[in-house]
Simulated assay, not measured.
Amino acid sequence: MTTPPWQPLSAREAELPVDRTIHEGVPEHLEPGLRSWIRDSVVTESLVHRVVAALKLNTDVHSFENGRLPSSARELSRVPTSLLLDVVDCLLYLDIGEVAHHSYLVKHPNATSPLAAVLSKPAKFVDPVDALDALLGDAASAYQVRETDDVSHAGLERVVDVTVAESAAMAMHRAESSGRDDASFYLRSSWTKAYALHPDASGAYVDAVRAVEDVAIPLYASAVPRATLGTVIRELDHNGAAYSMVMLDNNGGPAKVDTVLSLMKLLWHGHRDRHPGGQTSAPITPEAAQAAVHIAVLLVQLLSTSAVTRNP
């Protein structure tokens, strides 16, 4: 979650433009906060051991305090700077918020009782996940907290323009409401893989194509066994005149499906690692994967709302 950028008083009084710089990695102004967050939020030793195990930390590869693996929250907070974001991402994956809340309830068993809460007045529970998200936003980090859903655990993801993120969420919801649950699932999965701390570009591209296939094949290739997006493209290529857009063209008539077809072709032909070993085969870059996700979002939204219709 992002918050509007804040300006220091001196900058506001000088009427300076808002600084919208996004900071990659762990900038100097963020590092102390991240280390304090780890130290204060990790409330069980077992969580430290799980982070060490999940990240497969090794004293032969990384330098740790006293030359040994972290075994406490304090030691975990002092890992090399290069590991900080991985540690934070892993803690989110391991549901640090739930662990902290459980620990809070153990220490304050009457916290959920209204009467007991009034009489004993236990310290208010502070969700470490919310605290982290606020810290990242204050520091203008390139990363934010990814909320959990039915596809993935929480973790860090790259900051995306709010309007763009809301458009993607709308496409996912629209796909679900039109009965295309798989399209919604693959869109979410594609988004998660494309914008993760360590992106899975190839996996994101595959899921983007799958999301479009789930809405397009039933509309344009339902009778074809083992149909793919390529099958849909051939149908619209050969029989494009049989379809039209709900929008009007410059002559006032129904617009052709050329734009939708072009987007499908771009997505399909850009999937260059689909058949390894070919002359034009190439790895999918993170930037290409992100572009594929947004093309898929637009296509799923259009096809889920019947923006392309068959002519009478």
Rank of each mutant, 00 (worst) to 15 (best):
Thr280Ala: 14
Pro70Leu: 04
Val87Ile: 12
Thr148Trp: 00
Thr59Phe: 01
Val257Ile: 15
Arg12Lys: 15
Pro218Asp: 07
Leu156Gln: 01
Ala201Cys: 06
Leu47Ile: 01
Asp200Cys: 07
Arg146Lys: 15
Asp149Thr: 05
Ile217Tyr: 02
Leu263Ser: 10
Glu157Asn: 02
Ile96Gln: 08
Pro17Asp: 11
Asn58Ile: 01
Pro276Glu: 09
Leu85Asp: 03
Ser77Pro: 09
Ile284Gly: 11
Met264Ala: 09
Ile217His: 05
Arg35Glu: 02
Arg272Glu: 11
Lys256His: 13
Ser244Glu: 15
Val212Met: 01
Leu115Ile: 15
His294Leu: 09
Tyr186Ala: 09
Leu266Ala: 10
Val118Asn: 07
Asp237Trp: 05
Asp200Ala: 09
Ser306Leu: 00
Ser77Asp: 07
Arg272His: 12
Pro225Thr: 05
Ser141Gln: 08
Val293Phe: 00
Arg50Cys: 00
Gly25Arg: 11
Ala307Arg: 06
Ala111Lys: 04
Ala196Gln: 00
Val212Gln: 03
Lys107Arg: 12
Met170Asn: 12
Leu30Asp: 05
Asn58Ala: 06
Thr163Arg: 04
Glu31Arg: 04
Arg158His: 13
Ala117Gln: 12
Leu136Pro: 02
Glu15Thr: 08
Ala204Ile: 10
Glu31His: 06
Ala11His: 14
Ser77Met: 05
Pro128His: 10
Gln7Pro: 03
Tyr243Trp: 14
Leu267Ala: 11
Pro312Ala: 11
Ala204Met: 01
Gly278Trp: 06
His275Leu: 05
Ile284Phe: 01
Ala131Ile: 03
Val43Asn: 01
Lys56Ala: 14
Asp138Asn: 10
Ser190Ile: 10
His271Asp: 13
Glu31Gly: 06
Pro225Val: 00
Pro8Lys: 03
Glu166Val: 11
Arg78Phe: 10
Leu298His: 09
Asp150Val: 08
Thr305Trp: 00
Pro17Thr: 10
Leu105Ala: 12
Ser222Ile: 08
Ser103Gly: 13
His49Phe: 15
Gly252Val: 07
Val151Asn: 11
